[in-house]
Amino acid sequence: MFRIISKEHFSENVVKLVVEAPRIAKSRRPGHFVIVIDNARGERIPLTIADADPERGCITLVVQAVGDSTRAICAMNPGDELHDVVGPLGRATQIRQGGTVVCCGGGVGVAPLLPIIKAMKAAGCRVISVLAARTKDLIILEKEVREHSDEVIIMTDDGSYGRKGLVTAGVEDVINREHVDEVVTIGPAIMMKFVSLLTKKYEIPTVASLNTIMVDGTGMCGACRCTVGGRMKFVCIDGPEFDAHQVDFDEMIMRLKS
């Protein structure tokens, strides 16, 4: 169980792993995530699901090496086994039927965005994807996103690829150009905060997928709690997606720094 079937390096610190997890592959839907433990003494970390193949019984994870556990996972190779993979957890994305959707992802946030892009496109939406990263090498899954998007806008901080500028500039151009029914944003908390502030100005409904600290991922510990619309919510069971305009991003950023 949970054997790594293939591995691909997106960049020095980002890898794509295809992992055997037949039950999860069958029941997962866009928006879901998993909890992964790399070894018998490992920690439980939440990872988003980038793709799944129920026939082959595998799921695709995109992992960025940021801490000890993610570094260890990124160092694993095909044939190795993850100790535990639990899921699919969280609530699935509400897929919009028709209309124009801007899907904007930053860094590895593009990975969980991909299944949402696919589902929105399949449901008849006009999908405009905005992919953003610090530099060209960190833009991931561009080909897959292009396959399922009507238009793709690339933004890099250093201008090494696509347009130079922040993700918000790309999103704002679209908003100024045409009617947008919904925005979906997944990426670093600070990025989602500014996307949310932008779309609030234009009163466009916006969904953000939060990546807080978690332990069990099933509602038991409350480590992932955040404030949405002035009320306490648990990202693992109430989320991970919330109305971005209601999320207290400053509190979330403060809690992530712990």
């Binding site: 039950r23 029941s27 639990v86 899921g87 699919p88």
Partner: peptide
């Protein structure tokens, strides 16, 4: 690692 209602 099996969450009933989710995994199954």
């Amino acid at each position: 690692d099996t969450v009933i209602g989710k995994t199954l």
